[in-house]
Structures are given as structure tokens and as C-alpha cells.
Design a protein around this nucleic acid. Structure first.
Length: 431
RNA sequence: GGUCGGGUGGCAGAGUGGUCGAAUGCACCGGUCUUGAAAACCGGCGUGCCGCAAGGUACCGGGGGUUCGAAUCCCUCCCCGACCGCCA
């Protein structure tokens, strides 16, 4: 959410921001309603004040007759107040609907436009690999080495679910270990989070927990939802809290399963592991002071690059355009890894994403910080970034590390956990 | 699943119809004292909204009700804790 006063004082900027982000919102209508609301509020308060004066005078009334008269006066004032209050509430509801639909403001460097307008910032140091043999995609590779059971997943849970097997399972664990080890060295606190969260936490982070277009699975008869990312649980962890400014920044890395309905994604890149209903993710999350969030955002992006550099994967970094930011993000960087088996002759595919949500989530979740010696509290800034989304990282690894003899090299950084340097090497034949 | 106990300011914790935005302690800020610090003592110290200010108003888990008046009484929902049972 935005600061209401900010909207009133910067109506044009907010309106323009909505247009750039492709959000329909009538800001002038909002300003009108909100202004009206405030006027009514003042009237309500004035009548309340009068009623309070009357109430206090009752104890001092000279006799019963006067007492009754004053009571009647009080009753009438409260009735007047209730009528005005009802009017106020009605208008506030309409204003609130607009208010809640407003996206965050946008970093000045973010390119305007839709998905295609996102700007490439740089490429990683690893070159995209050239193959001297016909390239297989991750589904074919996984099948060859018995790493992935899509039919089994479908039988048990439906399309979009899967079993990881053998080195597939080992690679998932290795990727988790690799990411966590690296992040702990960077000062992140490792946490394993709940895989479910309450509705108010889910919506506080900016997801829509229920309804026809929701991306979120919810549990029947409970106010619980399967999380779409640990961003939800990590952000929710401090909801309602006031953090001592000395403790900032707080850097967490959380492991969770992620569940997504992928409603409306029918027909889009559904092959294999690219778009699935469940995967495991190591997520970075940071709470910072407002003045530190831009630098932290760069830091998270650098860490994502470092993780993929360490895996020896080629990628590009995108500054995501306004139309593709979603509600909470002020700025978002995506890493797209080179996936040789994607499309015709390979393509980049999104593997990580990091967002600076400034105070937008903090306001909804009510996460503040307090500085010693300073009056009052302020909202923290929240940031999130993918360290490793296992399923997509697996695609990139399998496809980039395939060899002419059909085997798959295990990236150097993962060997100590996978326990071998090659999948399907001679003497380790799967067939 | 059962029984009981709770949700009050940054924290702890009083308060059961008006004089309560709310005792007290801790923490924090300012001051006195001191070479300096600690201790002690004195003073200050919740948040939103309106207002230049004075001040006003709202907020004691959420919602509703009773009343001239509710942190306090009633209803309802949510959450937390303890113990018992069951269980990986």
C-alpha cells in the first residue's frame, strides 16, 4: 500500500505511475472521496466532542430532571454522529477499494512498457555453450537417466507434479546445500519456513489467497494457504512487529516448497519442469532501513549472479519493465539462464527474480522499525530474491551440462553433495 | 480431539462502568552529581487522523450489542499459552 497522504499530495504522479504499470485506477476520484472522508471525519469528531462533554456533565447534574435531560441530549448527539459515521464508512469503503488496487511507485530507471520492454542490464561471465551434437531437452535427458517421473507425479497428484529420482533428487538437495552454504557465508540466517500461511499474511505480502484467478492453493475449512514462495512466510515473520533499528538489516534465507495453481497459464511452456505446481526454492529476504534498500537490491541481484556463476551457467540480467512488475515491486531484476533445449535452438528462461518492495509490503504487514532517541516508528523496506528455484535450475543444469556420449556432467560446485562428477558415465550405467 | 487460562503502550504487567490513553517496573531521551563512567536523584517518554498552534478525536486482539458514557458488561469470531489424550 502507498501512504495516503502521499497520494493526496502527489495525485498526478500516482496516476501516471498507474498508467505506466497498466493499472486502471481513478486517482482523482480517490482524492475526491478521501477528501470528503476527512471532512466527514472532522464533523464526526466534533459531534463526539460535544457528546463527551455532555456525558461528563451527567455526574455533576443537580437533580434527576436535569440528568434525564442531559441523557436525552447525549442520545441525540450520538444518533447524529452515527448517521454521519455511516456516510463516512460508505465513502471510505469506495475509497478503500481504489486504494488497495494501487501498485507501488516505480524506480525512475525502470523501463516503461510490457514484457518486451524489459531492459537487459548485463550478461554473466559464462558463455552460452555451443554443441557439436544434437541437443536434448531436460525432459529427454531426465528420462534417459531416470531422474524425473512425470507420469508418476500425474498419477498421484495430477499434471504439473513430479517425482525426482536418483541424481535428480540428489541434485535438489545439492542445490539447496550449495545456496545455503553460500548465503550463510554472506551473513544470511538460514531458516526453514512453514509451507502454509494464513490469509492475511498471504495478502499482506501481495498475493490474492482466494478467488477464481488466484495462484494460491487454499485449504478447505481453514484460513490456511499453501505458500507460493517463502517470500510469504519470511515477510510475514515480522508482521505487526516493531524492529529495533540496530538490528537492521535483517537477512534471511529460507527453504520452502512452493505451490502454484498456474491458473491462466494453460498452454504456456508446460513441458517438463518449467511450469509446475510444486517446487522447492531457497529464497533470500531482507528487511532494511529505507535508505539502504536500493543498495540491498543490488546486493541480492549480485548474489543471484554469484550463485549462477558458481554453477557455471550462462545468464542475462533484466531490469523488468513497468507493465510486468506486479503490485508490490518498486523495481525487479530477473535472471534468465540459457536453456539449450528450450524452443528451437535454445532460449533464455527465467530462473530467479529479485524485487525491492520498499515500504509497500511493510505497510500492509505493519512492519516498522524504531530508532533509539527518535520519536515514533517508520516502515521498513522489504526485499526478496530467489537464490535457487530448484526445478528451473535443474533444467539449466541438465541441458547445459549434457555431453556427446549422453552423460551429464555434475557442476563442480555440487559434486561434494551429489557424490559424483558425472551422471550416466561409463561404469555407472543406468541402462 | 478435551479442559483451563490469556490477548492492554518498545517489553513486562496493573486496571472490572465515568476522575483511564491507561498505575508500576524495565528500556529509551534530557538534566543534576562526577575527572569520566556507573549508581542515585529530577524531568520527559504510545500511535493514527484533523489543526500553524492550543487543542480535539480515535485506538486496550477483530466485529457487533447494552449505556448519556465501555479496556471494564453481553454476544460472536480470531489468535496465543498451559495441561491431558493421540501421534511422526
Amino acid at each position: 500500500m502507498l501512504d495516503k497522504r502521499f497520494i493526496l499530495e502527489n495525485a498526478d504522479a500516482v496516476q501516471l505511475n498507474c498508467q505506466r504499470r497498466g493499472v486502471k485506477a481513478d486517482i482523482s476520484r480517490y482524492v475526491q472521496l478521501e477528501t470528503q472522508c476527512r471532512e466527514l471525519q472532522q464533523q464526526v469528531e466534533e459531534i463526539s466532542r460535544q457528546a463527551n462533554v455532555v456525558s461528563k456533565s451527567i455526574g455533576k447534574a443537580a437533580d434527576d430532571a436535569e440528568r434525564e435531560a442531559r441523557k436525552e441530549e447525549g442520545r441525540q448527539l450520538r444518533e447524529q454522529k452515527d448517521a454521519l459515521q455511516a456516510e463516512h464508512d460508505r465513502i471510505a469503503a469506495e475509497a478503500g477499494a481504489i486504494y488497495r488496487s494501487l501498485p507501488n511507485m516505480t524506480h525512475p530507471d525502470v523501463p516503461s512498457g510490457g514484457e518486451d520492454a524489459s531492459r537487459e542490464l548485463r550478461k554473466g561471465p559464462t558463455q552460452t555453450r555451443r554443441f557439436s551434437f544434437p541437443v536434448l531437452d531436460h525432459v529427454e535427458l531426465a528420462q534417459q537417466h531416470d531422474l524425473l517421473d512425470l507420469e508418476g507425479g500425474a498419477r498421484v497428484a495430477g499434471h504439473g507434479f513430479y517425482f525426482l529420482r536418483n541424481e535428480g533428487a540428489l541434485l535438489e538437495l545439492a542445490l539447496q546445500q550449495y545456496a545455503i552454504e553460500l548465503l550463510v557465508k554472506e551473513g544470511f540466517t538460514p531458516v526453514i519456513t512453514p509451507d502454509l500461511a494464513r490469509g492475511d499474511i498471504v495478502s499482506g505480502v501481495g498475493f490474492i489467497p482466494r478467488g477464481p484467478e488466484t495462484q494460491i492453493y487454499s485449504v478447505e475449512n481453514f484460513d490456511l494457504n499453501l505458500v507460493a514462495t517463502a517470500e510469504i512466510t519470511l515477510g510475514g515473520l515480522y508482521s505487526g512487529e516493531v524492529i529495533d533499528a540496530d538490528e537492521l538489516p535483517i537477512k534471511l534465507c529460507g527453504i520452502s516448497h512452493c505451490f502454484r495453481t498456474e491458473a491462466g497459464a494453460a498452454g504456456r511452456a508446460t513441458r517438463g519442469l518449467y511450469r509446475v505446481h510444486q517446487f522447492t526454492k531457497v529464497e533470500m529476504f531482507a528487511f532494511t532501513r529505507p535508505e539502504d534498500s536500493d543498495a540491498m537490491h543490488q546486493h541480492l541481484c549480485d548474489l543471484e549472479c554469484k550463485i549462477f556463476d558458481g554453477l557455471g551457467l550462462a545468464y542475462r540480467v533484466l531490469d523488468i519493465a513497468t507493465g510486468d512488475l506486479g503490485g508490490p515491486a518498486y523495481r525487479k531484476f530477473d535472471l534468465e539462464a540459457w536453456m539449450p533445449g528450450r524452443g528451437q535452438g535454445g532460449d533464455y528462461g527465467e530462473v530467479t527474480s529479485t524485487s525491492n518492495c520498499t515500504d509497500y509490503q511493510a505497510r500492509r504487514l505493519n512492519i516498522r522499525y524504531k530508532t533509539k532517541g527518535e520519536k515514533g516508528t517508520n516502515f521498513v523496506h522489504t526485499l526478496n530474491g530467489t537464490a535457487v528455484a530448484i526445478s528451473r535450475a535443474l533444467i539449466a543444469i541438465l541441458e547445459n551440462y549434457q555431453q556427446a556420449d549422453g552423460s551429464i556432467t555434475v557442476p563442480e560446485a555440487l559434486r561434494k553433495w551429489v557424490g559424483k562428477d558425472r551422471i550416466g558415465a561409463s561404469g555407472d550405467d543406468d541402462e
